[in-house]
């Protein structure tokens, strides 16, 4: 019963992904042909995920809006360079990654947890992680996320907000697959550590 349900779910997901991907690709082709309606459609489709990604990375609404604007303009200008070898959404997020980190380098005022603090806290706290996360509010998680480095926030964002595959994240961020995995693992522990550091237990 479980097996058949799982198989059905997989089939549905595959067909949905294929449809979504071909639709994004066709939309990007229309944008490459200077179709403004296609750009409007693309904006309607990607504005929420892109803005969420940018907002979680830079932490300021206005800056995230400026970056979203820049990303859309670049998509308009560079759509003809997309060769279709990867997913259209991955290409778009690659542009967003580039613009966001350019802005972060300009700003240079990110606060984050140090590696040693994270590792110490993870070993000290025995509270089951699932329980901990289940009982936190979204404000607490947001606050803990803000303590992570942009690089670690980014892999969490791409893996669990945007549901990108490991290889896709590696392509978007421009790092090896192994680094994506290690960053994700570290980000999970760092998030837990940040929750404790922010006084969650009390």
């Amino acid at each position: 019963m479980i097996q058949s349900g799982f198989a059905k779910y997989i089939c549905e997901r595959v067909s949905r992904d294929v449809y979504q991907e071909s639709s994004d690709y066709l939309l990007l082709l229309r944008v490459a042909n200077r179709d403004r309606e296609a750009l409007a459609e693309m904006y309607a489709r990607f504005q929420r995920p892109l803005f969420r990604y940018l907002f979680h990375l830079v932490g300021h609404k206005e800056l995230a809006e400026d970056l979203l604007q820049e990303v859309m303009v670049i998509i308009w200008q560079k759509a003809h360079t997309f060769r279709g070898t990867a997913r259209a959404s991955g290409w778009i997020f690659g542009i967003a990654h580039h613009q966001a980190f350019k802005a972060l380098r300009r700003d240079g005022s990110a606060t984050c947890l140090e590696l040693e603090v994270v590792m110490d806290l993870v070993d000290e706290q025995a509270t089951p992680e699932a329980d901990l996360l289940r009982r936190t509010t979204h404000e607490e998680v947001s606050l803990a996320l803000a303590c992570l480095t942009p690089e670690h926030r980014e892999v969490l964002e791409l893996a669990f907000f945007q549901d990108f595959a490991c290889k896709e994240i590696a392509a978007i961020v421009g790092i090896p697959v192994g680094t994506v995995k290690s960053r994700l693992s570290y980000a999970r522990h760092a998030l837990k550590a940040a929750l404790f550091r922010n006084g969650w237990e009390t």
């Binding site: 504005q47 979204h138 998680v141």
Partner: peptide, 24 residues
């Protein structure tokens, strides 16, 4: 654990503000 993490992050996602309406 991963599912709880994903669930926690999804709740944050729901509360993320939207970009301003006239951005396009």
């Amino acid at each position: 654990n991963w599912m709880e993490l994903r669930q926690a992050l999804q709740t944050v996602s729901v509360h993320t503000p939207a970009p301003r309406a006239d951005l396009f």
